[in-house]
Nucleic acid binder design. Sequence first.
RNA 1: GGGCGCAUAGCUCAGCGGUAGAGCGCUUGCCUUACAAGCAAGAUGUCACUGGUUCGAUCCCAGUUGUGCCCACCA
Length: 889
Amino acid sequence: MDARTLAVVTDNTQQSPEPHGPHAASPADLPTQYTPAEVEETLYERWVERGYFEADAKSEKPPYTIVIPPPNVTGSLHLGHAFQHTMMDALTRRKRMQGYEALWLPGMDHAGIATQNKVEQQLAEEGRSRGDLGREAFVERVWQWKEEYGGKILGQMRRLGDGVDWSRERFTMDSGLSRAVQTVFKRMYDDGLIYQAERIINWCPRCLTAISDIEVDYQEDDGELVSIRYGATEEGGDSLVVATTRAETMLGDTAVAVHPDDERYAHLVGRTVKLPLTDREIPVVADSHVDPEFGTGAVKVTPAHDPNDFEIGRRHELPMPSVMDERGVITVHGPFEGLDRFEARSAIVAALREQGRIVAEKRPYVHSVGHCSRCKTTVEPRLSMQWWVKVGPLAKAAGDAVRDGRTQIHPAEMSYRYFDWVDNMHDWTISRQLWWGHRIPVWYGPDGEVVCVGPDEEPPSGEGWHQDPDVLDTWFSSGLWPFSTLGWPERTADLAKFYPTDVLVTGYDIIFFWVARMMMFGMYVMEEPPFHTIALHGLVRDQHGKKMSKSFGNVVDPLDWMEAYGSDALRFTLASGANPGTDVPIGEDWVKASRNFANKVWNATRFALMNGATVEGPLPDAAEMSATDRWILSRLDTVLGDVDRYYDDYQFAKLSDALYHFAWDEVFDWYVELAKTTFAAGGRPAEVSRRVLGEVLDVLLRLLHPIVPFVTEALWTALTGGASVVVADWPKPTGFRDEAAEQEIAVVQQAVTEVRRFRADQGLQPGQKVPARLELTGTPLGAHEDAIRQLLRLQPAGEDFRATASLPVAGATVGLDLSGAIDVEAERKRLGKDLAAAEKELKQTSAKLGNEAFLAKAPDHVVDKIRTRKATAEADIERIRQQLERLPG
RNA sequence: GGGCGCAUAGCUCAGCGGUAGAGCGCUUGCCUUACAAGCAAGAUGUCACUGGUUCGAUCCCAGUUGUGCCCACCA
């Protein structure tokens, strides 16, 4: 029988031949290794078929909503998505188990410019361009792309185990969402929040569209700073020197600017100088934007090709001639016409040099240059007519919502970035000269009419009317995502039930692109913030903390690791690395380690089943339980509380860590080992322990489920016979604590560890049984004698018992008859080390307790602790000395 | 130029006023009847540097150095 059979056998919702589903299969038949690939797919499909992830808007349960940050349809999911999805899935799965009407709404983003570029690349490989196809056919082609790659993404989400509500899957270009876009556009237009203006914008000469400020990546590039003498023709006249890294723009210069207080140039202000290589005279203007300290203190002004120059041009009412076309090719009639901007740059510098006008050159000159974030082409500032969003009032509301706590940013330090942005935001260029996206709902009439059309209105028709050819920035539609996906502008049941959403889980890298915009639109349209909490996570990096990128060759396809180690292993690894707001390194070894953990859980549960662990019936009375039972239940309840707190604080790394250590160190390494003796002895104590072990695993598997859904589902159904852990109740703390039991087990652990250490030091074979007499000086250990003997391979002392080594541990003395096999030197060395450590401790604690100031000022519990430490050290020293004396030789 | 953060074991990271922690890696011994994807034992740190506050500082404060990120500017 393989794991798949297990999964099927334990599916008792179809039919339940026996009430004890788990016992239908003998647990001993389970494979000794967990094989995720066989289990995961079956389980996921079952969850979806049973509708576990479908939320009900009519439910009485309180809602819990997360909308997915819609992945771009440009490609496939990477580790960053896997990371983010793990957290969202864990959050919603837990809330679902807690009795919430949990909705995790999936979908994708049309990603205008990015997707259009991809399809254009595809076309280019076929030797075609979008122009060849025409707008309609091209858009059709992009839809095909969306089907293909969108499907791939959805498949990856299934593989990851994402518990999303597929019945509510959305796409930003769906008709409903498009309707939302048009509605918002119209409303904002009518409110004067969207307007058209001719300004300098960032233009990508390759994508052939305007892009917004944040779509420009600045990087340090080597350039050449040339100083050019303007004026002073052969007939004489005034001259001055300007410096530039973009000589080609001089063709569009319409002034030279100097600072108003700069005495060096005072005599030139108001006069003109000759613009080299042209027959134009341009004025010298005074403008305080100029920094007199920089360069020569004189600046060439090209209003149509530089944002600062544009402002100067506006202030001085300068002409603003464009000298390049949309591809960055010089259009000015003359020797440079038709040259690309970079060719023109060198040609112009060469021409100027020939005329002796280059007075200084500095190369390389490192300065930061803007690049298109989509295609890396150097951005060209360009004067053009675009649509804008007036962000002032929107950003104010978005900022206030966080300032007054209606939305909380987690971790809180990240709110600085958010405020920095919303408080200083410039107006947003929303029109794109693309074909893929939401077309701007504005029609132009033959007589210059401009009509913005709402979704229920007929656009004007007739001779000379045409729609604006541009589309909207893709972030416009994704900014509406939290409510457009729930049916807005219709007043749907979904909207009423699930808006505002609870938490946004996203990367800190898209605070500006997306988070701030959703906040703005949410406040504007819905008049309340779209989420209560913004949980920001970091970026996934490689095992050395290096950014994953194609050029480093360290990019990993999540599918590879999921195939090799299982989705659970990948998810657990990602969750373990998730400290709020910090980047997450991940390496294959770590995924392997998580796989090992899953396997450990698998085998421990398998062992439990083989030994009759059960969840049947009520938990026995504490009075019936052994200290071991009470200890593990006490610990379980503590861990449960910890996990809940960590969840509520988005501390995925901590909760993963807590569960990992509780499961492995406490339940598997100690409880299960101690229980073996109990099981072997049989009787009522064994029955009690079987029930306790069943309880512990039941709760543990439920706690682990949101992070590692597959292996927990397979095991939990096998253990409990329940339909699915997906719809099981989230465990509630019982308040059961037993400190005495915890202390007692701590002593057992200490005793066992001490003897193990002795055995290891003595080089005793683990299987070698050693006659021993447990001299129990403390009562608690008595109950554990059998278990201790078992763990330590001790056998009861015979008649001829002769203690050759005696290990005093807290509460007991273990006498061992090693029949002369003891390595006296090794033992002496070990004891010597222990003695030195104890003496050092005694010295330290004594010093502390002799310090008046310490005694006077330290809190009582600290002083008590030090006293205890001192007493322990004294006892240890005494004990070790006795041991040393007893050593033969 | 402005802002935020980080510096702890070989690596990746927790911790944070009262004896330095985890995972991986490493050493040694083990197929101990759930698991070798395992078990047991073990080694490893002037907690970046310099001062200050404190009975006590890895933790708080100031400065220094190194390092990462964000924003702005870069004629």
